[in-house]
Amino acid sequence: MVEIDAVVKVYGDAGGYRALDGVSFTVPEGQFAAIMGPSGCGKSTLLNVLGLMDQPTSGSYKLDATAVQGLSDAERTHLRRDKLGFVFQSFNLLPRMTALQNVCLPMGYAGLSRKDRLERAHGLLARVGLKGKELRTPLELSGGERQRVGIARSLANRPRLLLADEPTGNLDSKTSVEIMALFRELHAEGMTLLLVTHDPGIAAQADRILRVKDGRIVADERPAAQPA
């Protein structure tokens, strides 16, 4: 699903800050991988590259067997829209829209009809346990509920890969457990998941842990609890 090879990301000119310094790994379809590392180690940059939000300075990246180098901004955006789902630490819901409208947003960009969008959004919100709360705005939802909306929204265009950036970072431990249970359910249904965290308890629930330090992968572990 994800194949990156010798990816380098340099900020500024050639002698600038090397946020990624030759990262290579492969994530097969259906795997639940966690990326761990201290802050400033380059995991956000890695996630941005993987999410097609940022382009590597060098190295190759294949997403679902499509090489992304040389694609135009619009082509990368379309790929992102159709194959990727984002879950954010701070949820990033649009505050003036209802949960339903937030979930509909990516489908609008994909050009689905209004009827299809509403139908699918209702289904997704029911799937994440928010039936009956579709017309609330983010302000009227709890943190856990907001992240559920975020997850529903990330699934809107039936992505092949979910990218989650500290999805439980702003949640209390009880809610974190519920959200992680949701991710595990998605994984069990066959979704490929890439989750960035610095919480070992969260990372331990993944099939695989990639440890990043100073822009490099320093360890590739398989937790004993859940063998691959």
């Binding site: 939000m53 955006t77 379309h78 984002f86 960009y109």
Partner: peptide, 16 residues
């Protein structure tokens, strides 16, 4: 600005 970022992440193109 943040909303624009979210929209771009969710698949909104520059034209959108």
């Amino acid at each position: 600005i943040r909303e624009i970022g979210v929209r771009r992440a969710l698949g909104g193109t520059r034209a959108d």
